[in-house]
Nucleic acid binder design. Structure first.
Length: 421
RNA sequence: GGAGAGGUGGCUGAGUGGCUGAAAGCGGCACCCUGCUAAGGUGUUAUACUCGUAAGGGUAUCGAGGGUUCGAAUCCCUCUCUCUCCGCCA
C-alpha cells in the first residue's frame, strides 16, 4: 500500500512512476476522496472538541447536583450532528483504503524501463550449452519411461495440473525440498517454519494477493479461507501487526509449503507436464529488514537462490525485470530461470523481490529505529526454489543416452542413489 | 458440535459510566550513584490523524461493528479470535 501522504504531496510524480508499471492507472478518485475526508475530519474534530469540553462541564455540574436541561438539549443536537459526520467519515475512509489497496507498488528507480518481459535484462547467464550426442527427450517422456511421473492418474483424481510423483520421482521431489531447506538453513542463518496452507482473507491482503487477485487463488467458501499460492503469504504474516526493535532485525525466515494456484487465464500456456501446475512444492525465503539495507539484502537473496542452481548443475540465467513486468507488490525483482533442453525454453523457477514498505504497510509490520521513531520494515522474498520446473530441468539436463538420469552430487546423500534408471 | 472464560500500551496486567490515554510491574531511553563480570536511585517512555517553523495543541483509538447516553475501556446487541472442559475425529 502506498502512503497517502506521498500521493497527496506529489501526485504527478507518483502517477508518473505508477504508469511505468500499469498504463491504465489513475489517482483522480483517490485524491478526490482524500480531500473530502480531510475537510470532513477537520470539521468533525472541531465539533468533537466542543462536545468533550461541554460534557466535562456537565460532569462537574452533576457532581454538585446542579444539572441544567438547556445545556442537555443543545448537546443532544450536537451529538446527533457528530454521529452523522462520523458515519460519513467511516464511509470515506473505507473507500480510500479500498482504493489504495488496489494501487500497485512503485517500481524502484533502478528498474529497467519497459512494457513486458521482452524488455527484461539478462544480468547473468550460466549456460554450458552441452552437446548431447543422442536424441534428447523432454521430461514428460523421461518421467514416463522411468515410471516416476504419472499425469494420467493424477488427472483422474484432480484434473490437469496436479502432478503425481512415483517411486524414485517422489524420492527426488522430497530430496529437492530437503536439500534446499537444509542448504539455506545451514549457510545463511534462516529460521525454519512450517506454516498453515490455508489462510484468512486478511492474511492474503498483507502480501498483495487480495483484494485484486482473488481469482488466482483457491478459495474455500464455507470457511472463507484461501489456499496459499506461496509460503510468502504465511511467512510474511508471522509478524503482522508487530513492532520490532532495531536489534530484532534482520529476520530471515524460511518455509517449505505446497503452493496452490488456479492459473486462471493461462489455460493452454506451458501446460505440458510440470511446466505449469496448480499444485507444487516450494521452499520460500522471506526477510524483514531495515529500509536502508533492503537492496543489499535483495542481492544476497538472489545469490542464495542461485547457489542452489549451481549445486544442481543446471544451466540458468538471472533476469532483471523491467518496470512493466514487475508484479503488483514488488518495487524491484530478479527472476531466476533454468534452461530446459527438452522444451528449448527458459523456465522461471524463482522470483526474488524487494517489496520495500508495500507489504509492511498493509500488514502493519513496523520497527523502532535508532531515533526511537517508528517506521515500516522492508520485506523481501524469493523462491529458494520452486520444485516442478527444477524437477523437469534436472531430468532433461542430466539425462543419459541409455535413458537414465544422473543425480547431482548434492542430492545423492538425500536419495541414496546416483542415478535413476 | 455443546458449555464456559477471556481479548486493555513493546510485554505482563489493574481498571464497571465523567477526575482514565488508562494503575502497577517488566522492558526501552536519559541522567545520577557506585571501583570489583553487576546492582541501586531519579526521571522519561502508546499509536494514528491533524494544526503549528517549533514549543505545544486538537481528535480518535482499550479485538471489530452497531446501540444506549450530554458523556462508554466500563452498560446492551452482533460478529470475530484465543483459551479451558465435554463430545467427535486423528
Amino acid at each position: 500500500m502506498l502512503d497517502i501522504k506521498k500521493i497527496r504531496v506529489n501526485p504527478e510524480r507518483v502517477l508518473k512512476d505508477l504508469l511505468k508499471k500499469d498504463k491504465d492507472i489513475s489517482l483522480k478518485s483517490i485524491l478526490n476522496i482524500d480531500a473530502k475526508l480531510k475537510s470532513l475530519t477537520t470539521k468533525l474534530n472541531e465539533l468533537q472538541a466542543k462536545q468533550n469540553s461541554k460534557s466535562k462541564e456537565i460532569g462537574k455540574l452533576k457532581s454538585k447536583r446542579d444539572s441544567s436541561d438547556e445545556v442537555f438539549k443543545n448537546l443532544k443536537v450536537l451529538s446527533e450532528k457528530i454521529k452523522e459526520l462520523e458515519k460519513e467519515q467511516k464511509k470515506l475512509s473505507f473507500l480510500l483504503k479500498n482504493a489504495l489497496l488496489e494501487i500497485p507498488n512503485l517500481p524502484h528507480s533502478s528498474c529497467p524501463k519497459g512494457k513486458n518481459e521482452k524488455d527484461n535484462i539478462v544480468v547473468l547467464e550460466k549456460n554450458k550449452k552441452e552437446n548431447y550426442n543422442f536424441t534428447i527427450k523432454d521430461h514428460v517422456e523421461i518421467g514416463k519411461n522411468l515410471d516416476i511421473l504419472d499425469f494420467e492418474i493424477s488427472a483422474k483424481m484432480s484434473g490437469t495440473g496436479f502432478p503425481l510423483f512415483k517411486g524414485k520421482g517422489a524420492l527426488l521431489e522430497r530430496a529437492l525440498i530437503n536439500f534446499m531447506t537444509d542448504y539455506h538453513l545451514n549457510n545463511f542463518g534462516y529460521t525454519e517454519f512450517f506454516t498453515p496452507f490455508l489462510v484468512k482473507p486478511d492474511t492474503a491482503l498483507t502480501t498483495g494477493q487480495l483484494p485484486k487477485f482473488s481469482e488466482d487463488m483457491y478459495h474455500i467458501e464455507k470457511d472463507d479461507l484461501y489456499l496459499i499460492p506461496t509460503a510468502e503469504v504465511s511467512l510474511t504474516n508471522i509478524h503482522k501487526d508487530d513492532l520490532f526493535s532495531l536489534s530484532d532485525l534482520p529476520k530471515y525466515y524460511l518455509g517449505y509449503s505446497a503452493c496452490f494456484r488456479r492459473e486462471a487465464g493461462s489455460y493452454g500456456k506451458d501446460t505440458r507436464g510440470l511446466l505449469r501446475v496448480h499444485q507444487f512444492n516450494k521452499v520460500e525465503l522471506v526477510k524483514f529488514v531495515e529500509p536502508k539495507k533492503s537492496y543489499k539484502e535483495l542481492d544476497s537473496l538472489v545469490k542464495q537462490a542461485t547457489n542452489i542452481l549451481d549445486l544442481l548443475d543446471l544451466n540458468y540465467r538471472v533476469v532483471e525485470l523491467c518496470s512493466g513486468d514487475l508484479g503488483f507488490a514488488a518495487a524491484k525483482c530478479f527472476d531466476l530461470e533454468v534452461w530446459s533442453p527438452g522444451e528449448e525454453k527458459w523456465l522461471e523457477v524463482s522470483s526474488c523481490s524487494n517489496f520495500e514498505d508495500f507489504q509492511s504497510r498493509r500488514g502493519n509490520i513496523r520497527f523502532k529505529n535508532s531515533d526511537g521513531k517508528i517506521d515500516f520494515v522492508h520485506t523481501l522474498n524469493g523462491s529458494g526454489l520452486a520444485t516442478p520446473r527444477i524437477f523437469a530441468a534436472l531430468l532433461e539436463t542430466h539425462q543419459n543416452n541409455d535413458g537414465s538420469v544422473s543425480i547431482p552430487q548434492c542430492l545423492q546423500s538425500y536419495m541414496g542413489i546416483s542415478e535413476i534408471k
